[in-house]
Design a protein around this nucleic acid. Structure first.
Length: 160
DNA sequence: GCCAACGTTGGC
DNA sequence: GCCAACGTTGGC
């Protein structure tokens, strides 16, 4: 199975790529997803070893800010069982969990985050989910789109 | 803070 | 199962 690429959105005020980098083992559970389509992708499609682009939303400069890697495939999101937690779901149960999460590990920051504004201006990204369906929090990224993101996220390196 | 887009809920 | 009401997201 070849490695797939995903884009995960997060609000940096709540959990940023810097928080991921600073976490134990630079690894964190991607919890709190409460949308069925996003849940289905987490649960059914994302595999250990897949590549993840981290996107910062609801902030001054919405952008793809770096990369992570999936270190654990889907398992029940424990926050759904915690009554005090904002992501608690009274309709879920440990016998029939409703929500799932994955674990991701920090890989790197982009020296030049790729902004939403850039993506919108570039016709190459016209069919990217981030542009077409911006509210979905777990998005697929094609190989071509990933390659294009790479070409934008760092200064030109002629020695490479 | 506004508001458009869109997901979810619940009455019927 | 439809659809109106309502809630949330997230760019601007």
């Amino acid at each position: 199975m070849s490695k797939a690429t995903w884009l995960l959105k997060t609000e940096p005020d709540v959990f940023s790529i810097h928080d991921l980098e600073g976490a134990a083992n630079q690894t964190a559970g991607w919890d709190g997803v409460r949308n069925y389509q996003a849940r289905n992708r987490l649960r059914d499609e994302i595999q250990e070893g897949d590549r993840v682009l981290i996107y910062h939303s609801s902030c001054a400069k919405p952008a793809i800010v770096g990369e992570a890697i999936v270190t654990r495939a889907a398992y029940p999101d424990p926050t759904q069982f915690l009554p005090e937690h904002p992501a608690y779901d009274a309709r879920s149960s440990r016998e029939a969990p409703r929500w799932y999460q994955i674990d991701v590990r920090f890989v790197r920051h982009y020296s030049n985050p790729v902004t939403l504004s850039q993506l919108k201006q570039d016709a190459e990204f016209a069919d990217m989910e981030l542009v077409v369906r911006p509210r979905l929090s777990v998005q697929k990224v094609s190989e071509r789109q990933y390659t294009l993101v790479l070409s934008l996220c760092q200064p030109m390196d002629v020695s490479a």
